[in-house]
Structure formats: C-alpha cells, structure tokens
C-alpha cells in the first residue's frame, strides 16, 4: 500500500505529531511493498494545490494535526477548504486521522475527530478511523517510560494497518488511555506539568516572574 500522510502541525517536521507519525510509519513499512510519503501543511501554505494534487492521486490518506483551540489548526482548515472541489468525486481515497493534544486526557480530541469523520463523509471518502492521543505536548522532554509506551502503540497500530489495512480498535483504545483523569490524578498531574513543562521553559527564558503579565489589560 502507498500511504500519503499529511502532517498538519504548524511546527512541521519538529512536531509532536511528526514524532507519533514516525513510529506509525516504522510499523507500517514493515510489510514489504508498503511505502509512506509525508507531506507538510506548513511547507505548502502558499502551495496548497500540491497537497490537493497529492490527495487526488493518493491510494490512502492519513491526516494528522495537534488540537488548537479544541479543533484543527487554522492552517489545517485552509487545506480542508482547498479540498472542496474534490468533494463527492467518485474515486477519492479512503482516509483516516491522527489527532493529538497537549492536555493529559485524550477526551479533548473526540470532538475534532467527530468533525473529521463527518468531513470524510462529505468528501465521499471511506473513513478507516482516528488515532487519538492526549498528553503529547513536549514529547521530547517527557520521561522515556511514558513516551516509549505511546511510541510502541503507534508502532503496533502502524504495523497492523500495514498488514490488514485497518486501524486496530483494541490498540487505539489502549493508546487513548487515559481518556479521562480522576480528580486525584488531576491533582497530581497539574502541578507536575505546570512545573516540569511550563516553569522550566519560563525559567530558561528568564520569564518566570513575567509569567502572569497582562500586556493588554484594558
């Protein structure tokens, strides 16, 4: 199978979305003859037609993005709007999605996934499912025991997709854990993330004291 992956992260190649994709691809390409090609929205903002053409001729498409303001980034929506002329065409490729977010829970992604699945219907594409994962901000600075778990699931999901052409529901569910957090979990996780992820960056930038600045206070 030839799989066209479109990475909709505004961070491009250095994105958390890209890290997740790379492990999916590693599994996917284990089946001989499988090949994944990755294209980036951010590199084609002024040449969206390149992405539209890739979509038009694709065998299967996997679209991925980080959650921005509870749904797709605006730049990704630009691409979706550019696809409008192909809506309802007879031979549109089957499509699936990878949506990740920075909050600890996967639940936040469900609403964007519902939108994307309706989008597939609107395009007249068969939808082969959505890979959803929370807790993905700062993957490169998260403890390895956490990220290795995510990456292994992504690898297994990619491998199963490469072999059978479907996203394995059981693996998707495992990857999506935690879907929600208990209030005890939140009480532990929130101060940890605020310190390890945000304070550390604020401090490195000498901006910790300015963290609560209100430059546009009316």
């Amino acid at each position: 199978m030839r799989l066209t992956i479109i990475n909709g992260s505004p961070r491009g190649e250095a994105s958390n979305t890209g890290a997740l994709f790379s492990h999916f691809i590693r599994g996917f390409e284990e089946t001989s003859g499988n090949r994944a090609e990755v294209l980036y929205i951010i590199k084609n903002l002024k040449t969206l037609n390149v992405l539209v053409d890739a979509f038009r001729t694709a065998e299967a498409v996997l679209l991925g993005f980080p959650l921005y303001v509870d749904t797709m980034p605006g730049s990704f929506k630009m691409f979706l709007e550019a696809l409008e002329p192909l809506a309802g065409r007879d031979n549109n490729p089957p499509m699936g999605f990878l949506i990740q977010n920075g909050f600890p829970e996967t639940y936040h992604n469900r609403f964007a996934a519902r939108y994307m699945e309706k989008f597939a219907k609107r395009m007249g594409c068969r939808c082969f499912g959505s890979i959803l994962k929370g807790g993905c901000e700062g993957l490169s600075i998260q403890p390895a025991f956490l990220t290795e778990k995510y990456f292994t699931y992504l690898y297994e999901i990619g491998k199963a997709f490469g072999e059978r052409g479907v996203l394995d529901e059981r693996l998707l569910e495992k990857l999506a854990q935690p879907e929600h957090l208990t209030s005890e979990n939140i009480a532990q996780v929130v101060p940890f993330v605020n310190k390890a992820l945000w304070d550390s960056q604020l401090e490195a930038n000498g901006a910790l004291e300015k963290s609560f600045d209100r430059p546009y206070q009316p």
Partner: peptide, 25 residues
C-alpha cells in the same frame, strides 16, 4: 466544509496569548 472558515480559525488560534499555559481542574 462543515465548519467555520479557516480565516476565523486562524484568528482564534492567535488569541492564545490571552490565556496562561498553566493547567487547572
């Protein structure tokens, strides 16, 4: 295509300086 315009979404994405990165319950 089933959602508000990319034009509006790009503007909404640029409003995040108005909130704080810290998380809360």
């Amino acid at each position: 295509m089933g959602y508000t315009s990319a034009l509006l979404k790009n503007a909404m994405d640029r409003l995040i300086p108005l909130i704080h990165p810290y998380l809360r319950d």
